[in-house]
Design a protein around this nucleic acid. Structure first.
Length: 278
DNA sequence: CGTAGACCCTGCGCGC
DNA sequence: TGCGCGCAGGGTCTAC
């Protein structure tokens, strides 16, 4: 399910429920995810731990605990994190559970096991190898402005490959996954194969704006199912988002009537309209 | 330093 | 109906 908008919607739905709530304990049913789940550390440090905040960095959900640790959860390709009644029957691939003082449980389920559950010291979170190389957040918050063309211009220095690959490189800009990379390029009218080094500043401005719009729209639309997320249904909302090119090979482009094509970049499908993306 | 490709894993939909 | 194939929203590692 998850690109940045889905994680952000999840964060917003979980925050009001989890902040002030206490995680009594973690239960690991299967510990072989993308990396081994730190079973002993979770057992040791997640005993009656009060949640002080729920944040996000890139596609990582950060559940901050009083006492100085942060529970880090990444959903990979197929991960789901849902709040369910304590007596809800177990589901297939429910690998980790967090039992809450209220009696509910937070269920982590992930068939493909590309996800991640970690416990890291909050103070040094961004020095951890999962975080230290990460680039800028595309969406502004508080005093931080949204991504703009000037910033894209700065972070593209030394890059040569196709703009599609650049957009998905988390060392430059985080949170733009395969769907929204395709959608943003279409919205900006830029061909995915165009070299990042050969895009004018004016078009970089458009690209940055397109990324911000696409992600923002997805969050806004996902937000309409906020309550469903909180109730633990969780799967709704994703494909409600109206997509222009992703998954639409052979269909005609809404903007110019051209035929949408698919090709592969680095093992990932790219959808684009060859007539209005240049 | 960069980029391209393989790979981790299960489930689903499609064509035969 | 059953089976094999291709494909899936993530990230990381290796080879060049």
């Amino acid at each position: 399910m998850p690109e940045l908008p889905e994680i952000e919607v999840l964060r917003r739905s979980l925050a009001p429920v989890l902040i002030g709530e206490t995680i009594e304990r973690a239960e690991v049913l299967f510990d072989h995810l993308r990396e081994p789940v730190p079973v002993r550390r979770l057992a040791r440090e997640l005993r009656s731990a009060r949640v002080s905040g729920v944040g996000r960095r890139a596609k990582y959900l950060l559940i901050e605990l009083e006492g100085g640790a942060t529970l880090v959860i990444h959903l990979g390709m197929s991960g789901r994190l849902t709040l369910v009644p304590g007596d809800a029957p177990p589901e297939p691939h429910e690998h980790v559970r967090f039992w809450l003082r209220s009696g509910k449980r937070l269920r982590f389920r992930d068939p493909r096991r590309f996800g991640l559950v970690l416990l890291l010291p909050t103070e040094r979170l961004y020095e951890d190898r999962h975080f230290r190389h990460l680039g800028m957040e595309p969406l502004g918050e508080g005093e931080r402005p949204d991504l703009n063309g000037r910033q894209l211009d700065l972070v593209r220095a030394g890059c040569r490959g196709p703009v599609k690959t650049f957009l998905m490189d988390a060392r430059r800009v985080v949170g733009v996954g395969n769907i929204y990379a395709c959608e943003a390029l279409h919205r900006a009218g830029i061909h995915p194969d165009r070299s990042i080094a050969r895009i004018s500043r004016a078009r970089l401005d458009r690209l940055a704006a397109a990324v911000v719009e696409v992600l923002g729209d997805a969050i806004a639309q996902g937000g309409t199912t906020l309550n469903d997320f909180a109730n633990g249904i969780g799967d709704e909302g994703y494909f409600q988002v109206s997509l222009s090119v992703y998954g639409k090979e052979g269909e005609s482009c809404q903007r110019c009537g051209g035929t949408i094509r698919r090709k592969v970049h680095a093992n990932r499908s790219t959808f684009y309209c060859p007539s209005c993306q240049r």
